[in-house]
């Protein structure tokens, strides 16, 4: 496989790839802002700008979370959403509405609510991760299957609790769980952006350690990386990012998988400093560009999530089948 690729494609340096990606992202953002705009620019620009802001936030969160998760699990097929983390966040939120009631939940300041939920999410997802990977790390398929079934379990538990709360509370919850790719809730977006910026600095400082983690657990320890400590930090980061993206858009199973693997495909390097920006840019291109093509050109609205699930599912099956041969 690797040698075929090396023959077929001319060598472009990762940096050039990044520049091309950045240009594509810029083009799709401009297209999103301009195409089909009728009427008052002073309305359109802020309105569409907020949508782009939201898509960029979601895309960044999912891209970083997936790449980091794949690094600590040393596997390209695993993503936080496939392992049921999205569903876990939805469950955390449902449990909270269940016990607090919709009204007092809605009255909580957004910052407090988000901080609290993220803290619970960090704790629970770390537990889940430790339990899963401490137990069955040798069998990848078992791991993925267990992750998927955990997802179903969390979703069903959430569904069960949603049936138990009264319809008003349910409406509050549904609003916050089933948003679309172009939410424009400014407060939430603000919090998310701050969270991502904070996490970004954290990731930046971890970058060297992350590259070493890619060499495998034993090598990394040999080279002086505090393995457990680093993995714990990455898990916290992933949990925060999953909370951000799920709070904004709801669960999207395959988006991260597609974006991270595409990034590895075009960059062909394992250095996080190259992979992470590439993944972020690709997800922005996919979300914004996809939205432009679907919404403006074909006139469908929120079908983008459905199409991502379709393509992601096909890619995942292909990865499973290909992985089994080697």
């Amino acid at each position: 496989m690797a040698d075929i690729r090396a023959q077929a494609t001319p060598v472009i340096s990762p940096r050039q790839v990044l520049i091309i990606l950045a240009a594509l992202a810029a083009v799709s953002i401009v297209a999103f802002m301009v195409i089909g705009a009728k009427g008052n620019w002073s309305f359109i620009l802020p309105f569409r700008g907020a949508k782009i802001w939201s898509m960029a936030t979601i895309g960044t969160a999912i891209a970083i979370a997936t790449v980091l998760f794949q690094t600590i699990t040393a596997n390209r097929m695993l993503t936080p959403s496939i392992m049921g983390f999205d569903a876990l966040f939805a469950l955390v939120r449902t449990v909270q509405v269940f016990f607090l009631g919709g009204l007092s939940y809605a009255m909580l300041p957004d910052q407090l609510q988000f901080t609290y939920e993220t803290a619970v999410m960090v704790g629970l997802s770390t537990l889940l991760f430790r339990w899963l990977f401490g137990r069955a790390s040798r069998d990848l398929y078992l791991l993925v299957l267990v992750g998927i079934v955990f997802g179903v379990l969390f979703r069903s538990l959430g569904g069960l609790m949603q049936r138990l709360i009264n319809p008003n509370d349910f409406a509050v919850l549904q609003d916050s769980l089933f948003a679309s790719f172009n939410t424009t809730d400014q407060t939430l977006l603000g919090i998310s952006t701050i969270a991502i910026a904070g996490v970004g600095i954290w990731v930046w400082r971890l970058l060297p350690a992350l590259d070493v983690l890619n060499l495998g657990r034993d090598t990394a320890i040999n080279l002086g990386v505090n393995y457990n400590h680093t993995v714990s930090q990455v898990l916290v980061i992933v949990a925060i990012l999953v909370s951000v993206s799920t709070a904004l858009v709801g669960p999207v199973t395959f988006f991260g998988l597609l974006v991270a693997n595409l990034a590895y495909l075009v960059i062909r390097s394992h250095r996080h400093i190259l992979i992470l920006p590439a993944a972020i840019l690709i997800s922005i291109i996919t979300l914004v560009g996809g939205q432009v093509v679907l919404e403006r050109v074909f006139g469908y609205d929120t079908a983008l999530a459905i199409i991502i699930e379709f393509v992601g599912g096909v890619v995942f099956i292909a990865m499973l089948l290909r992985g089994s041969r080697t």
């Binding site: 398929y141 299957l145 096909v314 099956i317 499973l320």
Partner: peptide
Amino acid sequence: IPLRSTLMVPLVGIMLGGVISSITAFFAY
């Protein structure tokens, strides 16, 4: 699936189901 890994079979099945239901969801939408 040459090796017939026991756990890969339901995984492929679940994913196939996901792909089919996304087609369904698209038309339903």
